[in-house]
Nucleic acid binder design. Structure first.
Lengths: 347, 347
DNA sequence: TCTATTGGGACAAAAAACGTCCAGCTAGAA
DNA sequence: TTCTAGCTGGACGTTTTTTGTCCCAATAGA
């Protein structure tokens, strides 16, 4: 933050919030266009009246246009969005927080997006977009990419857009179904990534909750073995981070599983592994899929998770996460993580 | 204006006015401190409520302090004032206007201060302060300074403040009484300048409206002749510019004088000379004082006049003003001058 | 052709801003 | 020392603005 902006904020303290709010609205319109007042008010977490007031202003400023199909961002609007991007980040202290988190989590890079996806649904899309941009940059040098499931991963796939299709790209489902609904399964996500980028994808279909013997047998099957080999060659891993209990519930885990997860003090989940607050593996779902050791061999790992509710999980997972991990998260999660670590230090 | 501020203003168009308003209030407090709400509201041209709202905010921001004696600017406030000075000027387009006026009026430099002194009394003080700063810079190399009268000149004298007294400075009253009230006479102003700077002053006392013979005789008097010689040696001339009719009235000019001024189409007045819209001398008060030719010999001339009502007069005077003149004026006058010249061009 | 969604209009209710006064205090003049 | 002008902070009825909420005609897309 330069001295001028500093002085400006001294003289106009209300500016900060206002700017952030309008920026976010404009950004959300850009992401979801064409979009109407009502839909926008839901996704941006504001009342209809407020959205109306602000969008009227944005139109007067010729930053957006209103047609019968909905509101769209003008080229001027895009320009403003571009110009203020860094400024809004600086102003919200995001750049500072990124550096702090990088140190605390001991990883190579952290990217924080404004607001909290728990409160404002659109933030999830913003996270997705940012992660998509980061991932696209990796496509140039890395072609074998393992992806997991989850709604965050789905958000990334929605925002992927590549200038020219790259047939060399290969997306590998990092896990089987894991009991999640089809839309958010790793298999579906891998297919979506491939479709958006022009690459190919490999899926892993294996029933959950197999008996130990059946599992051992399956692992010898060529189709499955092929996947295991692919995991070894993986360049990039893209994954979400879940709350342990939430994931257990969503996956309809058996009572004994839930018991193990709970008694073990599991906090976070990733790749089907459950971690406690110190990052120790408490439980792992016995199904085929990428192994933690294989993840660690990847040259870059992209972890994506946002929302204040994910703070504890993120903190837990990163206790033992690979160094070359890049975390994409949001302000809500970041602030809570910093709050939690500060509290710990005080004790 | 940089791209960032531009984008900021696109997103927050209300910012501009708000910033200017608060800046002006803060600046005025700085100039008149300690000052109370009511006095400030009068001098700043705003309602008491508004002043109250803004000053409450400024206090919360720790830019001002409120004591029983009145409000004063804190060191933080001063800093903000300093930091935003250039920005506010840029934002109001003053820098642009200065360049335009410089070309139109064909002089070496123009300094424009925000707002209109016709509407906001405090602006006169701001003009005075700026002129004082410019003048002080000239003191280093120039010691013989001729000054005229008028309320604007009085404003300058109020704002003069010099780090260490300079006994070498000599202030010369450019004219005699000219029928104005004592406080705004050139003689009084010269004395005030001298007092503020530690210099000396020379006054010119000569009755107005002398007969031609008496005038000729007086001109031969040593005291008067001495002044005439001083005018020849003048380095710097500081003067105001008046509206012709207004000045005629204020000076209780005789009917025939008023008639000459009116019929000649006089628009402006300076040094007792009356000029028409093309800058031609229409009439001059027959009394001792600096001659136009002597003014033209000075190395620097500081012309100070503000307020929209002075626009025509300024335009008139500068038709034939010396090139090395520096004009200090305000936004109100500047905008009107530009408007008038634009209108002329269209015809 | 039908349906879901859009922007714009409208309006009562709630909230904020405004104009205006007064009381009590204090610094500086007399 | 007393007096007075000018200061802040509090108060309050009256506008003015903002807010929440509906409806409506238009239209894009299925």
């Amino acid at each position: 933050m330069d001295a001028l902006s500093d002085a400006q904020q001294k003289l106009m303290p209300e500016m900060s919030e206002l700017l952030k709010k309008r920026y976010q609205i404009l950004q959300t319109i850009n992401l979801e266009q064409p979009i109407g007042r009502r839909t926008l008010s839901e996704v941006a977490g504001a009342t209809e009246r407020e959205i109306r007031k602000e969008t009227d202003l944005l139109r007067n400023q010729q930053l957006i246009e209103m047609k019968t199909a909905g509101m769209t961002v003008t080229s001027q609007g895009l320009e403003v969005l571009e110009k203020l991007k860094v400024f809004v980040r600086e102003m919200s202290g995001l750049t500072d927080m990124e550096k702090q988190l990088q140190t605390i989590l001991k990883i190579s890079k952290v990217v924080i997006l404004p607001q909290d996806s728990d409160e404002i649904p659109a933030v999830k899309s913003h996270i997705g977009k940012e992660a998509a941009r980061l991932l696209e940059a990796l496509f140039i040098r890395h072609k074998k990419i393992a992806v997991t499931g989850g709604s965050t991963m789905a958000a990334i796939s929605k925002e992927l857009s590549i200038s020219k299709p790259d047939r060399a790209l290969q997306f590998i489902a990092a896990r089987g179904g894991l009991g999640e609904d089809v839309l958010h399964q790793a298999n579906t996500i891998a297919a979506a990534f491939a479709e958006k980028t022009g690459g190919s994808f490999k899926t892993l279909y294996l029933p959950d909750h197999l008996s130990a013997e059946a599992f051992a047998m399956m692992m010898k099957e060529p189709v499955i073995k092929e996947m295991m080999d692919l995991y070894d060659q993986t360049d990039v891993v893209v994954h979400g981070i879940g709350n342990a209990e939430e994931m257990a519930v969503r996956r309809h885990s058996s009572l004994e599983e839930v018991e193990k997860i709970r008694s073990g003090g599991a906090v976070s989940e990733a790749f089907g592994y459950y971690f406690d607050k110190d990052g120790k593996i408490v439980y792992r779902i016995r199904t085929a899929g990428i192994q933690l050791e294989q993840v660690q061999k990847a040259s870059t790992i992209l972890a994506v998770a946002g929302g204040g509710s994910k703070a504890r999980a993120i903190l837990s997972y990163f206790k033992n996460a690979p160094k070359p991990t890049v975390l994409v998260t949001d302000e809500g999660a970041a602030r809570k993580i910093l709050g939690l670590t500060k509290k710990l230090e005080e004790l």
